[in-house]
């Protein structure tokens, strides 16, 4: 097994406990959410129909049928997603700093492994990426399960069953997390991977130059964002929408590749020449 794969395996196993907790938390919260929301909906229905003598049709007309939409707008559903998102974002920093700070200076070992230091770096990036994909996959797998729970809780007359695609469309951020075409997949996840590398580069600036490095890191992130936005800005302000959208996307992709390359190159340099334990 190559050192890179060994390192990926190692990094994954380091985070696994917390990751499993995150997964369980998401499952429990969302399923509980389905139950709570279904109950309150049915409670509302009962109240309206028995106390206020509303007919079933009237109730549905007034309150709508129960669908995933009720769930996806609630804290039960969005809460765990936001929390996992925040945790993964936080882990992007933690995955480096935990090796440096405190009593455990594992970074000594990592930097002294007889392999290219970029393998350590790429293993960390891959780990974050796989964790994100994993969470998205979990969510996709959870939808049908939640649909079944919903079917137990809410009688068919009150329900609007959505298939997975419809469910995804009911989410605001769906287009990014659950791309429907391969092109979109590569675009969004490519952008995600690029962001990881840009942030990693900024972290390495900080680890190499400490206080001054924080400043350089922030400038580096701003520069990367600037480069990505450049085609759109130039088109908007200097060419007045001269380019077709597809051309703009193309150029932005090129800029994205450029930023990715730049991050890899810079990180390689910092890891090999500048970084300090």
């Amino acid at each position: 097994m190559s050192n890179y794969l060994k390192l990926v395996n190692f990094e994954l196993s380091r985070f696994m406990k917390l990751y499993v907790v995150m997964i369980c938390f998401t499952i429990i919260m969302q399923i509980t959410g389905v139950i709570v929301k279904s109950k309150s909906y049915m409670g509302l229905a009962n109240e309206e129909m028995y106390k206020n003598m509303m007919s079933k049709t009237e109730f549905i007309n007034q309150h709508g049928e129960f669908s995933f939409y009720w769930l996806t707008q609630s804290i039960w559903f969005m809460g765990p997603i936001a929390l996992c998102g925040a945790a993964l974002l936080f882990y992007m920093f933690l995955i480096w700093y935990r090796d440096w700070l405190g009593k455990n200076t594992f970074i000594y070992r990592l930097l002294m492994i007889p392999t290219a230091r970029m393998n350590v770096y790429l293993a960390k990036a891959t780990t974050i990426f796989l964790m994100v994909i994993g969470m998205v996959a979990l969510q996709l797998a959870l939808f049908p399960v939640e649909a079944v729970v919903m079917q137990w809780m809410v009688p068919v007359d009150f329900r609007l069953d959505l298939n997975i695609l419809q469910t995804i469309f009911s989410l605001n951020f769906a287009a990014v997390l659950f791309p429907l075409t391969p092109t979109e997949f590569f675009l969004w996840y490519g952008a995600g991977a690029m962001s990881i590398l840009v942030i990693f580069t900024a972290i390495l600036f900080e680890r190499s130059f400490r206080w001054k490095g924080i400043l350089i890191g922030v400038v580096y992130i701003a520069l990367s964002v600037g480069l990505l936005m450049l085609p759109v800005l130039i088109d908007e302000f200097f060419m007045y929408g001269y380019l077709y959208p597809i051309e703009l996307v193309g150029i932005t992709i090129v800029m994205g590749l450029l930023v990715t390359g730049m991050s890899l190159f810079t990180s390689h340099y910092l890891l090999n020449k500048k970084v300090t334990v």
Partner: peptide, 17 residues
Amino acid sequence: KKSYEKITFIPDAITVM
């Protein structure tokens, strides 16, 4: 990187998790 098979360092700190 190949030198790390020839020379090693035992720092005054834990190098394992």
